[in-house]
């Protein structure tokens, strides 16, 4: 096998393994937290369009907001 052929085989093996790992996550069921989030966003919007809004428009993420530090 030539040097280039070996190299391209190696590269496609790297890609195959990454793709397999990637697809494994893609195929997982969508966690409820995201389905609930989308429902919540839609519900908030419906509420906002109907009445005066008093709540914060978007839910804050769960992790610490430390990027201004």
């Amino acid at each position: 096998m030539t040097h280039n052929a070996k190299r391209s085989r190696l590269q496609s093996e790297i890609d195959d393994n990454l793709r397999k790992a990637f697809d494994e996550v893609v195929k997982q069921d969508v966690p409820d937290r995201f389905l609930n989030l989308l429902d919540q966003l839609r519900a908030q919007e419906t509420a906002q369009s109907g009445e005066t809004q008093t709540r914060s428009p978007v839910p804050q993420p769960a992790h610490g907001d430390d990027d201004h530090a």
Binding site: F22, V26, Q28, R33, F34, L37, L38, P61, A62
Partner: peptide
């Protein structure tokens, strides 16, 4: 969402962090 989680995990290499990131991105 599945693809977003996979991409986020490959960047953060941590599933909890990845899902927080997906949440922020969805909002």
């Amino acid at each position: 969402i599945g693809a977003m989680r996979a991409f986020a995990m490959s960047l953060t290499r941590n599933s909890a962090l990845a899902d927080d990131m997906v949440q922020d991105a969805l909002v």
